[in-house]
Nucleic acid binder design. Structure first.
Length: 906
RNA sequence: GGGUGCGUAGCUCAGGGGUAGAGCGUUGCCUUCACACGGCAGAAGUCGUUGGUUCAAUUCCAACCGCACCCACCA
């Protein structure tokens, strides 16, 4: 093995290529009775580049998939990409513009041809980057949301929902993005706080009986430019201030339109002036109020939110912002602008374009979600699917209970075109393609008809909602039973979905709803929602802040394993994680530690032997080690169950086991045995070699899902595993707790712990005394026979690790110490010892024990404690007190010793 | 306005009814033949505040104070 581990991208690529070439990621299909285990990768945007969120997402999925494979499941992890309608169309348009091609001049067909070409050229970058991350998905099954099969599935789903009346066309107010010139769904709206002007405007009352001359009603608005669309002024029916104006009329200034003053309970008396201008075509509340009162609709904006021909000529063609200024100036000059107040308010913006949205009256396709939502909610309530962390359940309920129709159509070209054709009379014909539509139309109308397909495409999330089953073949064929696809029958439904909480409603809920609708079954049993990744200071990562970390760059510098391990160790359900480079560096060091442990075992001649049986092990420290290993395996099995998903716990257990337990304790302890040269030591040496190799093999397999590259490389290159040459670690079975058969080893485990504790103690004292780490210090003591035997038995270990050598008797300048309440050995002191430090230390220990003593006595004297505390607690408390008293006595003796020595020295 | 989560060591974060944990940083010692991307030893916390439940609260409950985020509304 090389002295240093090679973290380079090239080394990792070689390993990955080997896995892929050998088909290690392929699902097995219907063979050898293995249980299927399915995971759907959330398809990244085809325009995407791997960002840190993907890295987290896919690391966690990969850990589980690799583990399940090791556990013997037939795993299918299906990857793919999403066509990402708006994002892709924007990107390609921009690129074309750079090439001097004006998108507005292109035909739909030409634009799509360009986009497809772009997709062929760049669409696979993100998939390559996922390979870099080590993602072990079944690439041969990769899908794209606009490939032929999936497009077919989309049409089938749409048509079926259409036939059932769940999908319908309607003219309603929608959120309109004036830059992209398309409708978007409620979920794509982002509220942004903005400073604005609250304008109080006088609307003159129409003179009639009961109306004073020159009187007016004052309305308040943040959007004065919309007054051209005003069709009423509304007040609350119980508002005393406006009682006299009931049934009166007023004049909308500038528009010079007479409108009624109406009453409606939805008007808030406290807001503004309590009089609300009603612009039904440009405000959601106004739209509702207008509907109740039979008002017409008056749209004053065009698709780009410029004023249209409905407004007086002077204002036509102005932008929203220009119009606002102009209106204010004109109102001012007419003396109708009563007041302007500065006020912050939140304004809806388009998530993609970033511009302020405009409610706009258009014909769009909608999907009625109510029934679907009810079923999705019920399924989660019944725990057919569980959410991790569970705190999302509340949010889930809230959203599904208040669900609104989903605006499905987008005024774009890139996407699944709506499979509806119109006759010249506007009749709808639903069909999978034009030929079928013509046929249907002819049958329906008894003659040939000219048809025109709907221009719009579907929201990208519609195809995403079918992802868990469309990718497995559901509806991929034009006809026949959509459920017959073999992959679908074997691998649906899936076990687990891992994704960010930010798309819980966009995606997760909709998959749930459509899966229940089309498959009559939940699409996944567990949804693991991970949190957001923030930078070291806890800020959201954003391009504008410039704090976006590039996972590829991190992998280049620290290796993929270090990044993966860091992400896993920080993945605490329900909490944002801050990514600091220091942590990644620490985990890079961890990989190095692993590598060096392998080198050490290799050098020591430790070789893995598959015939080795744990039960035959005799050495106490080996028994202790195997017991610890079993506890580790048990812990990991529990932490990594689908419905638990405690990646951070698992990672931390592995970290501490390898570094703290295996390297620092176990390997150090067996070093003397490994170094044994004489024949009589041979048995111990052989046992040390074989057990350490066996344990290491277990650790490497347990670590593999987290750090696939380093473990694989060790498996292939380290002589410890020479007998396994040629096999891939990722195809090896994992280590199960049940593989470690332990005997009745309690005594050995206790003894080993005792020795390790003793070593700690001696080291600590040595350090205080300032003893040279190299010097071997003789020690002796008046101890129990049993203890003395132990000290002799572990003599080599104590010499190597604590630098002490046991003598059965001694006399001179020495100092005792307390361990375990029964041993009171003494260390011989060389001249240069720091007795003062030792003295301070003893004093502190005495104080500590004194505290414990007081505490315990107080508790034990408390009658209520004695009555109520459970037995084991009571017993522990009593033992604690005894120990404390004992130690205090011993420590006092030592204090005396020190005093004596100091006296002697003086 | 409704909801969710978080305040624990200098920093970043785990944990969880029975005398506080990790990584990084820091202090001292060690260039000992796996590893200085290392080893050994140490210092460092009234676990946000105030009440309540309990024999026992950092942990459970309530209120409050701060900090995030989500949903709705904003005339």
């Amino acid at each position: 093995m090389d002295k240093r581990y090679d973290f380079s991208a090239e080394a990792e690529r070689a390993l990955y290529d080997d896995w892929e070439k050998r088909g290690a990621f392929r699902c097995a299909g219907r063979v050898d009775g293995k249980q299927p285990y399915t995971l759907m990768m959330p398809p990244p945007n085809v325009t995407g580049r791997l960002h840190i969120g993907h890295a987290l997402d896919n690391t966690l999925q990969d850990i589980l998939v690799r583990l399940r494979r090791q556990q013997g499941y037939d795993c299918l992890w299906l990857p793919g990409t999403d066509h990402a309608g708006i994002a892709t169309q924007l990107l390609v348009s921009r690129q074309l513009a750079e090439q001097g091609i004006a998108v507005e001049r292109l035909s739909r067909e030409d634009f799509l041809a360009h986009t497809w070409r772009w997709k062929e050229q760049y669409g696979n970058i993100i998939l390559q980057q996922l390979r870099r991350l080590g993602a072990s998905c079944d690439w041969e099954k990769a899908r794209f949301t606009m490939d032929e099969g999936l497009s077919c599935a989309v049409r089938r789903a749409f048509l079926e929902l259409y036939e059932q009346g769940l999908i319908y066309r309607d003219e309603r107010l929608v959120n309109w993005d004036p830059q992209l010139q398309t409708a978007i769904s409620d979920l794509e709206v982002r509220q942004q706080e903005e400073r604005g002007q609250l304008c109080l405007i006088d609307y003159p009352l129409i003179e009639e009986r009961g109306v004073e001359k020159g009187a007016s009603i004052t309305i308040a608005t943040m959007r004065p430019e919309t007054l051209f669309g005003d069709l009423a002024v509304a007040v609350h029916p119980k508002d005393e201030r406006y009682r006299a104006l009931r049934g009166k009329r007023c004049l909308v200034p500038l528009a010079e339109r007479e409108v009624a003053i109406i009453e409606d309970e939805r008007v808030e008396r406290e807001q503004g002036t309590g009089a609300l201008k009603i612009t039904p075509a440009h405000d959601f509340l106004d739209f509702e109020i207008g509907k109740t009162h039979g008002l017409a609709l008056c749209s004053i904006f065009d698709a780009q939110a410029r004023l249209n021909d409905e407004v007086p000529e002077a204002y036509r063609g102005l932008s929203r912002e220009q119009a606002r200024e102009r209106v204010l100036v004109d109102l001012q000059s007419q003396g109708l602008l009563r007041e302007i107040k500065q006020q912050t308010h939140s304004v809806p913006h388009g998530e993609r374009s970033g511009v302020a949205l405009e409610p706009k009256l258009t014909k769009q396709w909608f999907m009625n979600m109510e029934g679907l939502a009810k079923d999705a909610l019920a399924a989660v309530e019944r725990r057919e699917t569980i959410l991790i962390p569970q705190t999302w359940l509340n949010t889930w309920r809230r959203w599904l209970e208040n669900i609104q129709p989903w605006c499905l159509s987008r005024q774009l070209w890139w996407g699944h075109r709506i499979p509806i054709w119109y006759t010249p009379d506007g009749e709808q014909v639903a069909a999978a393609n034009e030929a079928e539509a013509l046929q249907k139309a002819e049958a329906r109308f008894g003659k040939k008809v000219v048809l025109r397909q709907d221009e719009d495409v579907l929201d990208t999330w519609f195809s995403s909602a079918l992802w868990p089953f469309s990718t497995l073949g559901w509806g991929n064929e034009k006809e026949g039973d959509p459920n017959k696809a073999p992959l679908l029958q074997r691998y649906f439904s899936t076990q687990l979905l891992v994704t960010g909480f930010d798309i819980l409603f966009f995606w997760v809920a909709r998959m749930m709803m459509l899966s229940l609708r089309f498959k009559n079954c939940v699409p996944f049993k567990v949804v693991y929602l991970h949190a957001l990744i923030r930078d070291g200071q806890g800020r959201k990562m954003s391009k504008s802040l410039g704090n976006v970390v590039d996972p590829i760059d991190l992998m280049d510098r620290y290796g993929c394993d270090a990044l993966r391990f860091t992400l896993a160790s920080q993945a605490v359900p329900g909490r944002d994680l801050r990514l600091s480079e220091k942590r990644i560096e620490g985990n890079r060091n961890f990989i190095t530690k692993l590598w060096n442990a392998a080198r050490f075992l290799e050098m020591q001649g430790c070789r893995y032997d598959e015939n080795f049986k744990t039960k035959a092990v005799e050495g106490a420290v080996h028994r202790w080690m195997l017991t610890r290993l079993r506890a580790l395996a048990e812990g990991l099995e529990e932490d990594l169950r689908d419905e638990v998903c405690l990646f951070h716990e698992a990672a931390s257990k592995l970290y501490h086991f390898l570094w703290g337990v295996f390297c620092d304790e176990y390997l150090e302890t067996i070093k003397p045995a490994l170094a044994g040269k004489e024949d009589k030591d041979e048995k111990a040496r052989n046992e040390a070699r074989v057990v350490s190799a066996w344990v290491f093999y277990g650790v490497v397999r347990l670590l593999h899902p987290f750090v696939p590259f380093a473990t694989e490389r060790i498996f292939q290159e380290c002589q410890v595993f020479a007998s396994s040459k040629g096999r891939l670690l990722m195809t090896e079975k994992t280590l199960r707790a049940e593989d470690i058969v332990c005997g009745d080893w309690d005594d050995d485990v206790a003894e080993t712990k005792w020795v390790l504790g003793l070593i700690d103690k001696i080291r600590s004292i040595r350090s205080d005394l300032g003893l040279s780490p190299k010097a071997t210090v003789p020690w002796f003591g008046d101890v129990l026979d049993r203890t003395e035997k132990r000290l002799e038995k572990w003599g080599d270990v104590l010499r190597a690790m604590a630098g002490v050598e046991w003598r059965s008797i001694g006399e001179g300048r020495e100092i005792g110490f307390v361990y375990d309440g029964v041993v009171e050995p003494k260390l011989f002191l060389p001249e240069e010892v720091d007795l003062k430090a030792m003295s301070v230390r003893i004093k502190k220990q005495l104080d500590d024990w004194n505290k414990v003593c007081k505490n315990s006595s107080a508790k034990l004297d408390n009658k209520k404690f004695k009555e109520n505390a459970p037995h084991n607690i009571l017993k522990a408390e009593e033992e604690k007190l005894t120990e404390a008293k004992n130690n205090m006595e011993l420590l006092s003796n030592i204090q005396e010793d020190i005093k004596k020595i100091i006296k002697k020295l003086l």
